[in-house]
Design a protein around this nucleic acid. Sequence first.
DNA 1: GGGCGCATGTAATGAGTTACATGATTGA
DNA 2: TCAATCATGTAACTCATTACATGCGCCC
Lengths: 182, 182
Amino acid sequence: MDVRELLLLGLVHRREMHGYELVKFLDQRMNFLIDLKPPTTYGLLDRLEQHGYVTSEVERTGNWPERRVYRITSAGEAHFWDLLRENLAAFSPASYPDEVGLYFMDQLPDSEVQVALETKLTQVLSRLVEIREKAERHAGTPARWLFGHHLAHLETERSWLEETLQRWETSSKAVTSKSRRE
Amino acid sequence: MDVRELLLLGLVHRREMHGYELVKFLDQRMNFLIDLKPPTTYGLLDRLEQHGYVTSEVERTGNWPERRVYRITSAGEAHFWDLLRENLAAFSPASYPDEVGLYFMDQLPDSEVQVALETKLTQVLSRLVEIREKAERHAGTPARWLFGHHLAHLETERSWLEETLQRWETSSKAVTSKSRRE
DNA sequence: GGGCGCATGTAATGAGTTACATGATTGA
DNA sequence: TCAATCATGTAACTCATTACATGCGCCC
């Protein structure tokens, strides 16, 4: 399943949009969710049109550059619902690149691990602020489920880091006092 | 930062390993963490050797196929620690493909959403069992931090789904009884 | 007048995946 | 004896990214 296809189809399903509009929307509103570059977006839209899921029409207002406006077809609507059901019913585990480092945590001196994890924690905290703001702006909209889910995992990240740092601190202190006694 | 480089370097840092051994290890033990195909792994090992981070030597026992055994160099060890510090200090947000569907949840009838999310939940539950088993097998090892982190997020996924399903159920019941009264 | 935004698209590059090849060994 | 495992690697393919091109409008 290609989530990007679902995303583009879903956006065009809500209302007709032109390519550049989608590019900007993805870059400005959906950047925390997915990272789609302009050429990729345009390419996907071409493919959606070739499959008959959307139609496109060139429009122009004044002397501005032409816009290619996309509208969903009935086949596209059916396909959108299929993809949506599939995406909602399947669990695609998230991947956590940071876990690779966790696997080797013991290979670094305790003090360095502590500094590093504290640095990571500050980044998590600032991201929490950022996403909370976005969530509030979308409070009434259907996007609230998305943000609720995202925030839940960010909170988990925060509390895991805080707890791990505490355990790390106490255990390294224990080692220090133990080695002092010896 | 390339986490795959960190992972391979870290494994070879713990003890010397040959290519196929790494391929199997990644496929059998690290599959929940990362998905590295054999040609990619061999290619990365080549690159690590070209950069002078590891050396390789061909060995053979009996009439078995040759093995190319990799050992870390001092430059490689230094690079490993750099990458590890960097990975531990930086927060790389996880991406959740399932969130795209959440964004469009309201476009599907309530009953279908409920069925879909319940299906997803069962998958999360079985994955929880699977990862808990692995975690127990690694209880004493340094990998326990990794599993602790992974399980924390899986538990979050589970409870988020359970809570969302409850809220979904009660709100759709409310609508049903309301429409019955009208 | 210079710089940024609008709006789309093409071409080259890079990087991973799939498929395939080899040949001996082990277990059913 | 047939299939699967061991062990490494190459070639073709797919696919996204980067860089570039265009040309007008708007703003300082």
